[in-house]
Simulated assay, not measured.
Amino acid sequence: MLLYNRLSRPELEARLRSETFRRRTLSFYRYVNIDNPREMRDRLYIAWDRLKCYGRVYVANEGINAQMSVPEHNIEALLNHLDSVPELAGMRINWAVEDDGKSFLKLVIKVRKKIVADGLNERLFDVTNVGNRLSPLEFHQLVDKEDVVVVDMRNRYESEVGHFKNAICPDARTFRDEIKIVVDQLKDKKDRKVLLYCTGGVRCEKASAWLRHHGFKDVNQLHGGIISYAHVIKKEGLPSKFIGKNFVFDERLGERITDDVIGRCHQCGDPCDTHRNCANDKCHKLFIQCDKCFEKHHGCCCEDCVNTLEEIRR
């Protein structure tokens, strides 16, 4: 049995279109000791491939981080399988807020040194000394208080299309950069109540421990992240204090939380929150592009890429 995909993108897209059942998108993570990540990776691939699961999964000695698309009729089987693996039993599941069933085209499970690239040396601090985990409702009650500091622990391209109204959104392209920027940017606020949030919660685990290591006294994090917050707020009938879109790392590139459009097209500056990857595969830059500029620039991020794409198509 091949433990990796061999199909081309057009073949994968055709396979997805031919499916007669619905899919649901979910995500989960856990920091847990995995003695043999390679063996775990192969076991999971075999089990999840049989269930026709697609997604992107990272396995490391420190744990697992997964975003997946699962056929509705196989969800129970997947959850039962998770509970059958000691390291994954009782896993907290985040369900997508806005789901078209087309979040992933294939199953990719990779062994990594870390489940999130943070650039931190775990020997220098206690990674288990994390911040207080706040429920979505607790976070909702605190997030707009004058005496708290709210920090978006996601990258700039994520926060520019959606964030909590009064959050500090560092200008960082990677989590590795951001975690250092935040410590420096908040160095005079170590006695304040700090609220951290991210997409599903995984980045805040390391970030909160890193802040506590640097002397921050009252560190808190949104348990389950923006995804959990959106579900709970909708269920309770409360107005969302997160505005705009929640960026996601799959084919959807975002799920709408509120109707607010806070982003801007990177080419013309008009209001827009549609992320695209440059149509020139040699570039594939992620950027915000409105429909007008998509037509004008043929889905490319710049004129050089337009010219390159035209040369390829000749």
Rank of each mutant, 00 (worst) to 15 (best):
K113M: 08
A77T: 10
P239Q: 05
V161F: 04
R123I: 04
I257G: 08
K102F: 11
V182I: 15
Y54W: 14
N61K: 14
G263Q: 07
D273M: 05
N155M: 12
A209L: 04
N65S: 04
H284N: 15
C283W: 07
A89N: 13
V148F: 12
Q267I: 14
F175G: 10
F249Q: 05
A230P: 06
R314A: 11
H223L: 09
L26Q: 05
H163S: 10
R24P: 03
C265D: 11
V219A: 03
V59Y: 03
P37Y: 06
T128Y: 02
N94K: 07
R156A: 13
E205M: 11
R6E: 13
L44W: 08
V127K: 09
K285Q: 15
E62H: 05
V70W: 00
K106V: 05
R314N: 14
N121L: 07
T258V: 13
T20R: 11
A117F: 00
R24H: 02
L238G: 06
T174H: 09
S159N: 06
V261F: 01
L88V: 04
G269W: 00
P37N: 08
D259F: 01
V161D: 03
I288Y: 02
E160R: 08
C265A: 06
C198K: 07
L253P: 02
P170H: 09
N307F: 09
A96T: 02
R30K: 12
F175A: 04
V261R: 08
A172H: 00
V150A: 05
K296R: 10
R38A: 15
L137D: 06
E19N: 07
G162H: 04
K193L: 13
D188C: 10
L16D: 13
I34D: 00
P271I: 12
Q141A: 15
N121T: 01
G225Y: 01
D35E: 15
A47N: 10
T20G: 09
N132Y: 11
C169M: 09
V127E: 01
R43T: 12
N277E: 10
W48I: 04
V248C: 08
G237Y: 10
L309M: 13
M1D: 08
D184A: 15
R192F: 11
S84M: 14
D42N: 15
E98M: 11
N74R: 12
V148A: 09
S240P: 09
A172W: 00
C265Y: 06
C268T: 13
V202L: 13
D118Y: 00
E251L: 15
R133D: 02
S159C: 12
L12V: 13
K296L: 14
V248S: 05
K296W: 00
F247A: 05
C198Y: 01
G244Y: 03
N61Q: 14
P37M: 03
G55K: 06
D191N: 12
G90M: 11
E138A: 10
I233E: 06
K102Q: 14
K145I: 07
C265H: 08
K110V: 12
D42A: 10
